[in-house]
Simulated assay, not measured.
Amino acid sequence: MKHFQRHPIAKYTTLKVGGYADNFYIPNDREELTELIQSFGSHQFLLLGNGSNIFIKSKRIKKPVLMTNKSLKDVDIDATTGKLRVGAGVDIRKMIADCLRVGLRAPVELLTIPATVGGAVYMNAGRTSMNSSISDNLIEVEVFDGKHFTTLSRKECTFSHRYSVFHRRPQTTILSATFQYDRIPSDVIQSLKRTSIEAAKDKDYRNLASAGSVFKKCDYQLMQSLRGTGFRRTGFARNTPNCIVNYGDAYAWQISALLAYAYVSHRLRGKQAILEWQVW
């Protein structure tokens, strides 16, 4: 296991903004991760996968930060039954690619989302425009609460739009998820891949640092009107509504100012905005 103190963590996030962690851990495997969590007892900690959907506005993170994408990376696929069990640290794009290789109808609509399986399950990641979410074909989730290993069914996870029960259980760590996918012809798979990639190819978040969709609930027309506004280093994306991009060396206070402006703009119009990002 690697352990760093006063460790800069902006580089581990897709937005590329943030301060440092007092203690930053990179466990090598599942055993090291769960033993570390167990050692914390009732003390709180933070989990970091691919670093998407996270805005680190603090200069200093006092809680221990645990990186999961090195320790929970097993993929077990049964091509005959279409069932697969995937470690929470596996990149969702790798999971999809592995499924496609054996002819399973994985959620190719999510190919452009830079999340780990654990992060995707936590947020119930999806593409609203393509009516697809990670939870659509989920069977169960294996979790660890620091004392016990348990398994939650899809129903027990209480998924809704960009939400799961894990939002109310911050000290519960997702270890793996099990899915069930149908077999489909290879030509259908290729068509689905092309459609997904084509839909996202011109989006700013593909080429610039971004944490993904800012709000899970907002006024779409209002967010359209904010496109291209902001600072020299950061601003609302020019061609992607509801997205903030980092043009290079953005400051956390600038991101905070953009969020505040969006919130105030919603309130002035009697609208509601609910943040999708996690804020540390």
Rank of each mutant, 00 (worst) to 15 (best):
K2Y: 12
P8H: 10
P8Q: 09
I9D: 01
A10K: 14
V17W: 06
G19W: 09
A21S: 12
S42Y: 07
S42T: 14
L48N: 10
G49E: 06
N53M: 08
N53G: 07
K57M: 00
K59W: 04
D74K: 14
D76P: 00
T80S: 14
G82V: 06
L84P: 06
G87I: 04
V90R: 07
D91N: 14
I92Q: 14
D98S: 09
C99R: 09
V102Q: 07
L104K: 11
A106R: 05
V108C: 13
I113W: 00
A115W: 03
A120F: 10
V121Y: 02
S129Q: 12
S129G: 15
L138T: 04
T158Q: 15
T158K: 14
H161N: 13
H167Q: 15
R168Y: 06
R169Y: 07
R169I: 04
Q171P: 00
T172S: 03
T173Y: 04
I174V: 08
D187V: 04
K203I: 00
S210G: 05
S210Q: 03
V214A: 09
S225A: 13
R233N: 13
A237M: 05
I244F: 10
V245F: 04
D249T: 01
W253Q: 12
Q254R: 08
L259I: 15
L259V: 10
R267A: 10
G270K: 08
K271I: 00
K271C: 10
